[in-house]
């Protein structure tokens, strides 16, 4: 199957398309002649300019969802377009909370499997070939779909650069959702924004993460303080998220966020494969761990074999003294 047309799910946050969606649009442009976006919410026409700049010619606008979680209604709208014969050869979803929901729903609805955790996407003889980082990124598996129908791909953030290609405003066309019945029963009744100081975890220039080696929940304050002094974001290994020390939104790893900061500082993190896949492509890695055999040292540019309880306070004090 040749790839002529690709759709990309364009998610919106703070009135702008999210970076992960723009990465997918600009990469799709290198794979197919026609790239179109699918968007939902109240602000679709406002983002058509940006989507066009990155390479989308059309925005299929599902419109306001009336408080519904996006999974069911957006999957319905895409399925209806495919049914009507307007569907693409492939649909790319950013690996976000809603992107995964929509992809999963659509997969079951049109009876096509979905490939997730994609980190690379190239054109092959029989369609698109995906790359997946497995075993902490030590190995790359390549995969593809067999059989007919559009390929559904959920792609991890930062797999491709987001680059503008100078296109004009994308044309907005309506792609209304059909009545989805009971599947559309989940409604958002209130939204809460949690106070965040400093940059977002996946956009920060510096990320400081803590793991089990911190010993106890209270010591995570050291991670937050160091992150703040370096004008960075605080991350965490899965172990301490599972232990309830910090919320899931801080998690870096296979299940969690992918980060590629200028500097990643891993404190008391052993470097399980689960964690490595989310941070090993950072430009520079500093690891502090008391176990000299910890796998984290195999990816570190600077490895400090030492106790985080001793090294971190000194580091923090020295940075404070610099003002």
């Amino acid at each position: 199957m040749s790839i002529d047309k690709i759709w990309v799910l364009a998610e919106v946050a703070d009135g702008k398309p999210i970076t992960a969606s723009l990465e997918l649009i600009s990469h799709a442009k290198s794979l197919a002649g026609t790239v179109e976006a699918v968007a939902y919410g109240e602000e679709t026409s406002a983002i058509a300019g940006t989507l066009g700049e990155y390479g989308a010619t059309t925005v299929h606008d599902v419109g306001d969802l009336g408080g519904s979680l996006p999974g069911a209604p957006v999957a319905d709208a895409i399925a209806a377009a495919i049914e009507a014969g307007n569907g693409p050869d492939a649909i790319l979803f950013p690996a976000t909370y809603d992107g995964r929901d929509i992809a999963g729903r659509l997969s079951a609805k049109i009876d096509r499997p979905v490939l997730t955790n994609v980190v690379g996407l190239v054109a092959g003889d029989g369609g698109l070939i995906t790359q997946h980082a497995v075993f902490g990124g030590a190995q790359i598996a390549t995969a593809r779909f067999v059989g007919d129908g559009p390929g559904l791909f959920v792609v991890r953030a930062k797999s491709f650069p987001a680059e503008t290609s100078g296109g004009g405003q994308a044309e907005v066309v309506a792609a209304a959702a059909t009545e989805s019945g009971p599947t559309n029963g989940a409604k958002i009744v209130a939204s809460h924004v949690e106070e965040r100081t400093g940059p977002k975890l996946d956009e920060a220039n510096v990320v400081v993460s803590g793991g089990r080696g911190l010993g106890e929940k209270e010591n995570y304050a050291l991670i937050e303080e160091l992150a703040s002094l370096l004008k960075g974001a605080a991350g965490a290994s899965r172990a301490i998220v599972d232990a309830g020390w910090v919320p899931y939104s801080h998690q870096v790893g296979q299940t969690g966020k992918t980060v590629k900061p200028t500097v990643y500082v891993a404190c008391g993190i052993s470097g399980a494969t689960q964690h490595l896949v989310g941070m090993k492509n950072s430009k520079n890695i500093v690891a502090i761990n008391k176990d000299q055999d910890a796998p984290i040292f195999s990816v570190a540019d600077l490895g400090i074999v030492g106790d985080v309880h001793k090294v971190l306070p000194k580091l923090i004090e020295a940075l404070k003294a610099r003002g």
Binding site: R112, P113, L115, I129, A133, V134, G137, A138, Q139, I140, A141, T142, A143, R144, F145, V146, G147, K280, Q292, F297, S298, V299, A300, D301, L302, G303, I304, V305, G306, D307, K310, V311, K314, L315, A318
Partner: peptide, 27 residues
């Protein structure tokens, strides 16, 4: 299954760097 893994290969190794054993001044 309508998806197949076609290949598995080792990814580029990241070279490990400098290791410093803390003796109080590694910070």
């Amino acid at each position: 299954a309508r998806q197949e893994i076609t290949d598995v290969s080792a990814s580029e190794e990241r070279a490990s760097g400098e290791i410093v054993v803390d003796e109080g001044d590694a910070y």
